[in-house]
Simulated scan of single mutants.
Amino acid sequence: MDNSHPSPLDGRTVVVTGGTRGVGAGIARAFAAAGARVVACARRPPPEKLPAGVEFAPLDLRDPPAVRDFFDALPRLDVLVNNAGGAPYRLLADTDAERHARVIELNLVTPLTASLAAYEHLRRTRGAVVMIGSVSGGRPSPGSAAYGAAKAGLENLARSMAVEWAPEVRVNTLVVGMVRTELSHLHYGGEDGIEAVARTVPLARLAAPADIGAAALFLASDAAAYISGASLLVHGGGERPAFLDAATVNKGE
């Protein structure tokens, strides 16, 4: 007797923007393992061979005509994961408004561009959009203020999109905390820095890209069929409130 079961995303097509490295690669890998055909698009080719089931497509998300052409050429689309983004550490007064605007464009405008280009496909397949947000959008983000502002806007955009595009298309946001990737040392200062930062997280570690991939897969799957306009926190419990460490109560003082 055949006890095999089809994978939850067999036959479905998924596009992951920025899906060739870091968090995006973890997301692409999770969808491929679930049986989907995954297209990972980015401006530059992947740094290493992509896993089985994932193909690379070059795409500059800041070029709206190219984005529209890319989605128009797809035979079908079931899930769009808007993952591409990021920003360097940059204090507000250290550069001009034009540079900050480019950060907002990458992290807010390009997900809107991709979602609009994908809309007709997703409407036909009753598909899903997953925005990759950030805890930076819900708290002060010194050194990445434009990024935090863009991620706050992205979460609000997703809520409005979920209402406008219902019932055909579900739209949700993953609000992601700190993730350990191949670039973590640039942000936290090597292994000692990574371990020190991990100790500030209640679950005592940074997320792995696979953790984000699993959460994105859930929001895109039939298991989340009645979830739309939601924000799912994937941050290991968040940040320990600073006042707890500053308080003198129970410290014998």
Results as ranks from 00 to 15, higher is better:
His5Pro: 04
Pro8Ser: 08
Pro8Ala: 10
Arg12Ile: 02
Arg12Met: 11
Val14Lys: 07
Thr17Arg: 04
Thr20Met: 03
Arg21Met: 07
Gly22Val: 06
Gly22Asn: 10
Ala25Val: 00
Ile27Asp: 05
Phe31Gln: 06
Ala33Glu: 15
Ala36Leu: 12
Arg37Leu: 15
Val39Phe: 01
Cys41Gln: 00
Arg44Gly: 05
Pro45Cys: 00
Pro46His: 07
Pro46Gln: 09
Pro47Tyr: 14
Gly53Ile: 12
Phe56Glu: 01
Ala57Ser: 15
Ala57Val: 04
Pro58Thr: 03
Leu61Asp: 01
Pro64Ile: 07
Phe70Leu: 08
Phe70His: 08
Phe71Tyr: 13
Ala73His: 06
Pro75Gln: 04
Leu77Met: 07
Asp78Ile: 09
Asp78Asn: 11
Val79Ile: 02
Asn83Leu: 07
Gly85Ala: 09
Ala87Met: 06
Pro88Lys: 13
Tyr89Ile: 11
Tyr89Gly: 06
Leu91Gly: 11
Asp96Leu: 03
Arg99Met: 01
Ala101Cys: 07
Ala101Gln: 13
Val103Tyr: 03
Ile104His: 08
Glu105Leu: 02
Leu108Ala: 02
Leu108Asp: 00
Val109Cys: 02
Val109Trp: 03
Thr110Gln: 02
Thr110Pro: 02
Pro111Tyr: 00
Ala114Ile: 01
Leu116Ser: 03
Tyr119Gln: 15
Arg123Cys: 05
Arg124Gly: 13
Arg124His: 12
Val129Phe: 04
Val130Thr: 12
Ser136Gln: 13
Gly138His: 14
Gly143Met: 09
Ser144Gln: 14
Ala145Met: 10
Tyr147Gln: 01
Ala149Asp: 01
Ala150Asn: 01
Gly153Arg: 04
Asn156Glu: 11
Leu157Phe: 12
Leu157Val: 05
Ala158Ser: 14
Ala158Asn: 00
Arg159Tyr: 08
Met161Tyr: 08
Glu164Pro: 04
Arg170Asp: 06
Val171His: 06
Val171Glu: 08
Asn172Ile: 10
Asn172Val: 09
Leu174Trp: 10
Val175Phe: 03
Leu183Ile: 05
Ser184Leu: 04
His185Leu: 01
Gly190Gln: 05
Glu191Val: 06
Asp192His: 13
Ile194Met: 10
Ile194Leu: 15
Ile194Thr: 03
Ala196Trp: 08
Pro202Leu: 10
Leu203Asn: 12
Leu203Arg: 13
Leu206His: 14
Gly213Val: 10
Ala215Lys: 11
Leu219Ala: 00
Leu219Ile: 05
Ser221Gln: 01
Ala223Trp: 08
Ala225Tyr: 04
Gly229Gln: 02
Ala230Phe: 00
Val234Glu: 09
Val234Gly: 11
Gly236Ser: 12
Gly237Lys: 08
Gly238Pro: 12
Glu239Ile: 15
Glu239Lys: 13
Pro241Ser: 14
Ala242Thr: 15
Ala246Tyr: 10
Val249Trp: 15
Asn250Gly: 12
Asn250Tyr: 15
Lys251Trp: 09
Lys251Met: 09
Gly252Lys: 06
